[in-house]
Nucleic acid binder design. Structure first.
Lengths: 221, 221
DNA sequence: CGAATAGTGTCTGTGAGACAGTATTCT
DNA sequence: AGAATACTGTCTCACAGACACTATTCG
């Protein structure tokens, strides 16, 4: 199809969330190419039409090659587009968000990646501040009625840890006994043999998610 | 930036919903260009990088020029992409969904547009069936905790009409008195002077939305 | 033993479903 | 008057928050 207008640039940007020092953080990477070379921005890259089957493939490839991460939670957020958002011309960025436990991130933190609390991110290139804001909004909203926040924890965790991460994500205090009741009824998690002695006065039972995939609930937590 | 791969095709596709004969329907338009010329598909078009400020501008332009509609509810759904979804090559479609009252649609139904109940849509070109499925899913989910379904009604409507449209969208029966209580408490609507005699045994009060924009609630309806 | 954190039991208020009952119009 | 639809009032049950209480470990 010969078009009478130039085809746009198509990229994928990733909002990679983790909990660090009890705060919700986003990963930023120093850009190694113009424009904005050397500045911190979201991890992202071009869609390679010759090798990526679709935008999901682009996202996982970028996550693997630029952050050394694989098999973590990843979902499409929304697409940011326009003539003005990128000095190279009309562009669209299919933004995704990813969740990773801090422990999985430690080994790859050499690659010019910094973790910043989401409420302390300064001005970024492109419309990356808007993308992060949307990512946080989605995370908060979806966290209230799904197992989303659990993907910020390691595979095995305690109930207090799970409650903590829900509180971090939702930015609200959760009633302890009510939280336990609901988690119990919703059958999101199952116990693991063994106890958890370190890190608290009384050892806590260990659990894991019953399903690998995201689960959504009817009611709110 | 000279890339070593071809830039993708970028389009916008619209899932235009309305209620017709008490059923949730989607608008399909006969394609006037290849590929799939002459077949019914979602209303859509290329992003014109020389005239559209962003994808939202593309969506409103397509809605105006191909369906003759302006000022109706429109929101981005998600982006469908890949090498295989379009015979012209690697493409991305920024899918949107729009809601329109049937009355507003009547004058523009000459333009090769058909309305099909969402559960009776046959196989469509590209991945348009998947796009519609996603649109319906979003509409149902968001309808449960927002004023979304009201955008399928004319500006002035009765409470029974509002309840009906919520039931259509959510595909579930709603308790009448509970619905009225919640709508009342949420202050979504305000009464309009005048009565509604036609169309029911006892005239019903008329209401309009208190805000033009979409409102989200904490609880479900 | 006391501090600290994990986990349980119980009371109470609120909101939603069910449904009966009242109001208004038409034939 | 009776049918049909709009609207209102009330009962009850379930669930979420509050909070007191018990349990287990450590120093």
């Amino acid at each position: 199809m010969p078009d009478d207008f130039e085809r746009p640039i198509l990229t994928v940007d990733l909002t990679l969330f983790t909990i660090k020092d009890t705060r919700l953080c986003v990963a930023l990477q120093r850009r190694d190419k113009p424009p904005f070379m050397g500045e911190f921005a979201l991890i992202g890259g071009y869609v390679h039409t010759d090798e990526d089957a679709d935008a999901w493939a682009t996202a996982t490839r970028v996550l693997r090659t630029k952050a050394g991460l694989e098999g973590i939670f990843l979902e499409q957020l929304m697409t940011f587009s326009g003539a003005a958002r990128d000095p190279r011309g009309w562009s669209a960025s299919i933004a995704h968000y990813a969740l990773v436990p801090e422990a999985s991130l430690a080994p790859v933190l050499r690659r010019d990646i910094a973790l910043l609390p989401v409420d302390e991110v300064g001005p970024l290139p492109f419309d990356h501040n808007a993308i992060i804001a949307r990512g946080v909004q989605r995370l908060r909203a979806k966290g209230a009625y799904s197992s989303l926040p659990a993907f910020l924890l390691p595979a095995v965790f305690t109930l207090p840890q799970l409650r903590d991460v829900y509180e971090k994500v939702m930015g609200a205090h959760l009633n302890d006994s009510a939280f336990r009741r609901k988690i119990e009824e919703l059958q999101i998690i199952e116990p693991v043999k063994g106890e958890f002695s370190k890190a608290s006065a009384r050892p806590a039972r260990l659990y894991r998610l019953r399903k690998d995939a995201l689960q959504e609930f009817d009611r709110k937590l």
